Computed example of a mutant assay.
Amino acid sequence: MSNPIKNLTKKEWALWLTSLAVVIASNLLTGSVDPLTLAAACVGITSLIFAAKGNVWSQILMILFSLLYGVISWQVRYWGEMITYLGMTLPMAVWSTVTWLRNPADNGKAVAIRRLTAKHIAGLAFFCTLTTWVFYLILRALDTPNIAFSTISVATSFLAASLTMLRTSYYALGYASNDLVLIVLWMLASLKNPLYIPVVVNFTIFFVNDMYGFISWRKREQAALA
């Protein structure tokens, strides 16, 4: 595994440090810093920056983020988020770590990018539908708040984690879609408790970083085809 920090460009350093500064400031401005939320945000941002480089450390950090976010979701009774990240995103991040380690690019600094086939797309559609339906039944049984958005979050999380495992640039669009859903979910939670306003800011920053990750991977794809 190459050193992910060593390979960052000036633009990526700026994006990383700016993102960290914004989430730290948003936590401080609430007047009541939640150490768990702040730690999760910093780990998540760092994971996304490394993911944009195609570095396997991003998946290792995603495992840690899933644990932290699972606890945060439990505190707000967002059972869907807790179950999704602990029961699906975390194990798939472990699987992605193994997959990325086994498929390095020629330069050895990043994971090799894979092109989706019709078989991949059909499999994703089938298992995403099945997983979302099963999770919906669980969420309904648990009387989960804002169940519609929680169910959509399950679907986007599944697609994001699966596309990451498949090593395709569309993983970033999957996570960006999930970010938008989570922004809505945590805005609803912050209406009851302003302490969660920083979480909304966190996922807004995540969205920006995920879009950068998509652009970065697409550039690598185009360079490989040239």
Rank of each mutant, 00 (worst) to 15 (best):
A176W: 07
Y175H: 13
L36V: 13
A112E: 12
G123C: 05
T168G: 07
V199H: 05
M62R: 09
Y69Q: 01
I183G: 08
L225K: 09
N202Y: 09
F149N: 08
L180H: 05
N202F: 13
K10C: 09
A40S: 08
M211W: 04
I24R: 01
I72C: 04
I45K: 06
I205V: 15
I45L: 14
C128T: 15
L86I: 04
T144V: 04
R220M: 09
G123P: 08
L188P: 01
P4R: 01
I49S: 04
N107V: 00
T89R: 05
W133N: 01
D179Q: 08
G31L: 12
A161Y: 07
P4A: 00
Y136I: 13
F207A: 07
T84G: 03
N202G: 07
L163A: 14
A110G: 07
T164H: 08
T9Q: 14
R102K: 04
L36M: 13
Y175K: 03
R77D: 11
P104E: 09
S190I: 07
L142C: 10
F206P: 15
S58V: 06
N107P: 03
L137T: 14
K109F: 15
P35V: 03
Y212R: 14
T9H: 06
F158A: 14
R140F: 11
M165N: 10
F65G: 02
R167F: 03
P104S: 05
Q222E: 15
V33R: 14
V56T: 13
A155D: 03
V94L: 08
L15R: 13
L101V: 03
A51V: 14
L166G: 12
L142G: 09
A52M: 07
L191P: 00
V76P: 00
P104W: 04
S153P: 02
A161W: 03
E221L: 02
M62P: 01
S73G: 06
G44F: 05
M62Y: 13
A155S: 15
S32N: 10
A161C: 10
N27V: 02
W79L: 11
T129W: 04
W79K: 11
N202D: 06
Y175A: 14
I197V: 13
M88K: 02
F126N: 02
L38H: 00
L29C: 12
A105E: 06
Y170W: 15
L130H: 01
V76Y: 08
I152N: 10
A105R: 11
Y175V: 05
A21Q: 11
A51R: 05
F206Y: 15
A118W: 00
M1G: 07
T129L: 08
Y171R: 15
N103T: 13
K53W: 12
A39E: 00
I215S: 03
P35T: 10
L8K: 15
K192S: 12
M88P: 01
S66I: 04
T30Y: 11
F149I: 05
P91V: 04
D179I: 06
